[in-house]
Amino acid sequence: MVRFLTRRVLVGVVTLIAISIIVFGLFFAVPSSPAKVMCGKNCDAASIAQVETRLGLREPIVTQYTKFMKGIFVGRTYADGTAFERRCDAPCLGYSFRNDEAVTTILSRTVPVTISIVIGAAILWLLIGVSLGMVSALRRGTLFDKLAIGISLTGASMQVFFFGLILLFLLVYTTGLLPFPSYTPFTENPAKWAQGLILPWVTLGFLNSAIYARLSRAQMLETLSEDFVRTARAKGLPLRRVYTKHALRAAITPIVTIAGLDIGASLGGTFITETIFGLRGLGKETVEAVGFLNLPIVVATVLLAAVFIVVANLIVDVLYAVIDPRVRLS
């Protein structure tokens, strides 16, 4: 198990390094000069040169890359030889001169928003989606099953911006049951945190529930036709135990994989949800940064999204090994 883990962690680290190199290379290849964009319309060559020096764009890309990587671990200082100097403490993911803030500071503001949205929604969609799917598989062909299929079909074909806006219209503007979504840190006021996020949770949670319900139903039906389920019944186990112990554990395995990857990917930003509900999360921040060609933020967020996915993959692998003993040995 330790070996298995070590290997997976190593693979993850190598992947991240590869991604960081690719991302760096890509932005180096951006056609227009970021310094020019940042400097504004009326900008002379001297000012552009100054910005370029500050950003370190005049140095060779390999130097830029090593400086960036070093900054993550020990921090770095941006200076252009004038009185201008900005300290960026470790972990330094770059410095946005446009905002005049360290990227880390920006991220520490936006990442909690996205994490809050995704975790809450994921709990909803896993609980509702998976149990709905499992129950409808066990009651295959009944009214409940047909109803569940219908609802999940509707949900799966709906879009966040449509469903989210309807909720917003009904629950906030028309009836005033809920305040307009906003973000309050959990540590400050948990009740307010939950109240402010309930709409994005329901929106994202419901739509994903639909997908997970269909997936779980299919998985459960497949598992129920397995020989070992027949064996469990032949042993004389009560049906409830056959389902909850023998069938569920096998059916849940592939769902764990998909859920892990889905959550990992969502943490990289839920742009549409964030935008609709006016929450400044990672997704919204990134998209805006792209619009302004605010390179330091873009590089950092892309890397962060990669980290989420790699870590999610790692967790999935570990969970898989815990669930399925056959994986453990190989």
């Binding site: 397995e226 020989d227 019944r233 004389g236 009560p238 669930i323």
Partner: peptide, 22 residues
């Protein structure tokens, strides 16, 4: 159910798929 496994029991063709892998 109460008879199954106690008064009558069964073995199947493919023991790999008939035993729970987990």
């Amino acid at each position: 159910r109460r008879l199954r496994g106690r008064d009558m029991s069964m073995i199947f063709q493919d023991p790999l798929s008939a035993l729970h892998p987990y």
